[in-house]
Design a protein around this nucleic acid. Structure first.
Lengths: 294, 294
DNA sequence: GTTTGACCTTGACGCGGCGTCAACGTCTTT
DNA sequence: AAAGACGTTGACGCCGCGTCAAGGTCAAAC
């Protein structure tokens, strides 16, 4: 057989066969006088074996090792590793399909806006809020969507569990809208305005009442300064309210006693990029770092 | 915010943020006097949107298009495309996990040999055959494993459906072993040996009786010459038996009337490489070519 | 003052499993 | 003798970044 026949026989490309030679996963056959490779049954059997291993999910390196160690003690380990990896991928695919299904339903019903890829729980909550005329509400909305996009290990979803209970609590919603109104009124106030302190106090009380202030174990806590960049989009008096609110909350809440542990920004988690990788990475435990969320 | 803060906030690396700038999926923010990028809330929101789209499975190119077309009419199409792609991946993962489970069970029980990654149906059949002393049986075994590795659309698995019925038919098994014995006896015979013709006739009859000779619709049929490379591992007289058998079978069977349609060896199917691709390829219908199996 | 050390900048290479030219030789068929 | 279907080696492309390399900037610690 020549390379094209062998490749066609097993349903791969000639490039693949040559690549396998190059990678040492398939031995080079003898050459004819013209330089052509000449394959026999043993080569076909060897290639078939490689293909079966690859189709099981082994990398070429792993396949080479398994083939080299003829009494491979590694194969079972590799297989179970691949299986657990596949199980993880399956779960992740199902989670994504669940989200996709909700999105597609929404796409059929009406029009879907730029934030509609946020988590379904938050989307429902945002629909309940509905304060289109308020700039404070718009600001808060952006902040909520942002937090919702933060991976769970980073402190995101800290609040998502409470959205449902808040949405079904008319009094909480009314108070929330009142806060928006009062913040809007402070738009052109000066930093020393007397309405600032009471509003911050009420907001802090409201927050401590409705938000789960005990961070998840292992969670890094807040960085109070992380909010600063977002205060740029408010007026000075409004920003003061938020700053004071945070100060009150971090003062009175147990989480304030946690040492602030700023995560290493140079090594964030690979997030969903790891979805597709099935090869064993050097440091195999999929580390998930943490980031400050407010 | 500087780039490290933004990246940590959303749980990605600074390299990722800069890459998104380079790909045009995230606009470049203004620079400070020292050249540092300075990010605000709008940038964080934009990055969060990109991340959500990417986590849904969109490629960066797709995300860029969706973000550019603000009233994107493409998003629903892309979503449903991704969903069907994910559904396919899910099925394939489940199929692989099924095979892996059987393999791992076998690995626990006893030792698993080099062919044990073949299909479970064939493995069971090979265990029933068990003719360790016969060279013909070894040859046939290799051929069977080879055929089993050939993707279905290439004519592989043509026989796998009959393995079970054959394995439970004692008479068929006895006749099979008798063929091995008679072939072994011909090891050192000369090409003109009088036992060749009767053995070929009996083998042909046996084949037509037990093997599904009607190829699947769309299947390309055999290339009788494709067997030649494998006959090199037999002695001349044995090879003659096989050649005559094939001639008799292709003569008497309906499949012989099919025109031989050699598949294009330059464009074989991507096989399992396509498992991971979720991007829409130019020619999207996953073509599956066909190859000669004997 | 200076020296860490943590951050920022651009640029280039690496990864896996091949696909896809390019530039050329070889063999068969017309 | 020309075409065209094969073979050969070699190099680049892909995707979504990780990972150096070789610097510049800035605040805190000595």
């Amino acid at each position: 057989m020549r390379i094209g026949e062998l490749a066609a026989l097993l349903g791969v490309s000639t490039r693949t066969v040559r690549y396998y030679h190059h990678q040492g996963v398939l031995p080079e056959p003898p050459r004819l006088a013209n330089g052509y490779r000449e394959y026999g049954m043993r080569d076909a059997v060897a290639l078939a074996r490689v293909r079966r291993l690859v189709e099981l999910g082994l990398s070429l390196d792993e396949a080479r090792d398994v083939i080299a160690d003829d009494r491979s003690r590694e194969l079972p380990e590799i297989l179970s590793e691949i299986d657990s990896d596949l199980a993880r991928q399956e779960r992740e695919i199902q989670a994504r399909r669940t989200r996709l299904a909700k999105l597609m339903k929404r796409a059929e019903e009406g029009t879907l806006g730029p934030d509609d890829t946020a988590s379904p729980a938050l989307m429902d909550f945002l629909q309940v809020i509905e304060a289109p005329a308020s700039k404070s509400a718009a600001w808060d909305r952006e902040l909520l969507v942002l937090m919702d996009s933060i991976p769970p290990a980073h402190g995101g979803e800290l609040f998502s569990s409470t959205f449902e209970s808040m949405a079904t609590d008319p009094e909480a919603m009314a108070r929330g809208h009142d806060f928006y109104r009062r913040l809007d009124e402070l738009a052109e106030a000066e930093p020393g305005d007397p309405r600032i302190a009471p509003l911050a106090a009420a907001l802090a009380e409201y927050s401590m009442e409705h938000l789960p202030l005990d961070p998840a174990p292992g969670s890094p806590g807040w960085d109070p300064e992380a909010i600063e960049p977002f205060l740029e989009d408010l007026t000075p008096a409004q920003a003061d309210v938020i700053r004071r609110t945070i100060a009150l909350v971090t003062e009175g809440a147990p989480m304030a006693t946690l040492p602030f542990d700023r995560p290493d920004p140079l090594r964030p988690p690979p997030a969903y990029a790891a979805l597709r990788e099935s090869s064993p990475s050097p440091g195999y435990a999929p580390r998930t770092a943490a980031a400050p969320g407010w």
